Amino acid sequence: MNNCSVYPLSQAVKGAGGKTGNWRTVKPVIDLEKCSGCLLCWIFCPEACIGKNDRSIDYTYCKGCGICETECPKKAIVMVKEEGK
């Protein structure tokens, strides 16, 4: 099997785009009860702000793009509106 079909060709780097969390209008929330630990959210997060070991989210860098929600096969991630925005 070709590893390119399983793993991304490049890796996101935390903070490469600066602290992007301040312009986010929605944020991902992970339901750890539903989470299977597949790490697709971690693999696909373009800002590398999802923790690999505990699936915590660093909201300083999360821009609220929703890719993690889209990629989650268990629907354990939902995007919720930011308070005051």
Rank of each mutant, 00 (worst) to 15 (best):
S56E: 01
V78I: 12
A48F: 01
K74W: 09
V13T: 14
I50T: 01
G51S: 06
K27G: 04
C35N: 05
G51R: 01
A76P: 07
V29D: 01
D54V: 10
P73V: 08
L40K: 02
C49Y: 00
K19L: 12
C72W: 03
E82K: 15
R55G: 00
G66L: 05
P8C: 11
C49T: 01
G17P: 04
C4D: 11
K74Q: 11
K27D: 04
G15I: 05
D54P: 02
V78C: 07
R55N: 11
L9G: 15
V78S: 12
C35I: 09
K75S: 14
K52V: 03
C49W: 00
S5Y: 11
E82P: 08
Y61Q: 00
Q11W: 07
I43R: 15
I43F: 09
K75M: 13
R55C: 04
V29S: 02
E69L: 07
T70V: 14
N22W: 10
G64I: 05
P28S: 09
K74D: 12
K74N: 10
I50F: 01
K14N: 02
A12Q: 02
C41L: 03
A12K: 00
S36P: 05
S56M: 01
C35P: 08
D54I: 02
I43Q: 06
C4F: 14
K74M: 13
L32I: 12
L32S: 07
W42L: 03
D31Y: 04
C62W: 01
F44N: 12
V29H: 05
E82D: 10
K63A: 08
E69R: 07
T20F: 03
V26P: 00
K19V: 11
I57F: 01
